[in-house]
Amino acid sequence: MGFWKNILSHRAGDLGTRADVSIKETHFTALDTELTGLDKKRDAIISIGAVKMVGGRIDMGKSFYHLVNPGTEMGKASIVVHEITPSDIHEKPSIDSVIREFFKFCSDDILIGHFISIDLNFLNREARRITGRPLPNPAIDTLAMVDWLKWSSHGDDSEINPENYQLHEIARGLGITPEGAHNALMDAFMTAQVFQRLIPRLEQKGISTLGRLMEVSDPSRKLKHPGMVI
């Protein structure tokens, strides 16, 4: 229960004066992390991947991908899921330097992730430890977005009617084919592509400013379809 409580109590950063800015002009960083497990106390980040977007445009030249030496024992499960072995990690930089570089990369962008609460839990834990405060960036969640679109279109949009809320299932529905290795960078790229295709659909529903976007994709928003597998 503690895990869920943590997720739901997470507060996204403040939007400040940007609520009326159009989505098309907003700078985003789509991110994904790979973790040794989901336990916030015991587990650690093993890689961070991110790509930059301006509105719906993905900037192919600006990406971030670093493997991290987590300093903890990696579970066998992680090896299976992420295809990262302990020897891959061993020589990698420590989380401190990677996190600092990542914060620089994000600048003051809006962060996008799929079920981003989990990533933020770990990123904020490290941020607090290193800088004394959590990431200041506002964050939005593609999962919440899809959930809201599915609800508001009453299942009429066949491309937004996934069987479950897993990133790859949602991407498949939107016609995005998974390419390349399964890692944090490719998942961040996939998240960006999902977001890219959701923007026009959101616009159709009258959501074109950052403020409105935050309302429907707040990571702490209660899902409209709570029974879906995440």
Binding site: Y65, E179, G180, A181, M186
Partner: peptide, 14 residues
């Protein structure tokens, strides 16, 4: 940045 390397298949296939 290793992004393009990571997405070799995507980019090159397409």
């Amino acid at each position: 940045m290793p992004f393009i390397k990571a997405m070799d298949t995507l980019a090159l296939n397409v």
